[in-house]
Amino acid sequence: MKVGLFIPCYVDQFYPKVGIATLQLLEKFGCQVSYPSKQTCCGQPMANSGYEHLTHDCNRLFINNFAEYDYIVSPSGSCVLHIKEHLHAPESETQNEGKATHIRKRIYELTEFLTDILKVENLEARFPFRVGLHQSCHGQRGLHLSQMSELVATPFSKPEQLLNMVKDVELVKLSRKDECCGFGGTFCVAEEAVSSRMGIDRIDDHVKNGTQVLTGGDMSCLMHLEGVIRRRKLPIKVMHIAEILTATE
């Protein structure tokens, strides 16, 4: 199958190793992966700030870059959710709405692609650490990668399912298993005080429960949490889930 690799802008710029780990994972399971070089961003930073009407050019670009693939996969629940919910052809190019629809239906966050499409059951990875999983809200509540603590429903977790395939990983049990970290796009600066406080509280939960390595499916949340960890000089390492799923330590 032909997979288009969508690497969100901030991952491209700040966390290339996350992109590399994602690529390696997909290749390992036999996907024919390409990275369209003209990609930039899903448009979410503008849209969540109230400027969805400024995302037409991003949308056009996204459609041009990804329409030809069987699947589009990305190591970010948040960006995938944005595309799933908001990608449409610009009004003047309605002939491309079919392509947009194809993308909206065929775009997957990395962990759900591994569990649901590739049906991965064995990872041959090893990572002997106490791992704390941060559920990003867009991945969890938006894409339903895990059951949500508010709902009276059967629990499940796609990222945990994968982490449990990694030898010697010990998953940390948190006091609040799916509370938002406070990143929230422009919220992280527009509401700096609350955003930082939410980040501090999330980290505190991980510290109290013995997390050695903090992971998750959304590098944006992790970037924010890593910012808090480093400012407070805490002994917690931050890694994207793709890096743990490819680890052989």
Binding site: D12, Q13, P16, E192, S196, I200, E226, G227, V228, R231
Partner: peptide
Amino acid sequence: KQREMPEPPKESFG
């Protein structure tokens, strides 16, 4: 104010 920025890598993923 309360957070560090990520350390910039040598090259982008692209």
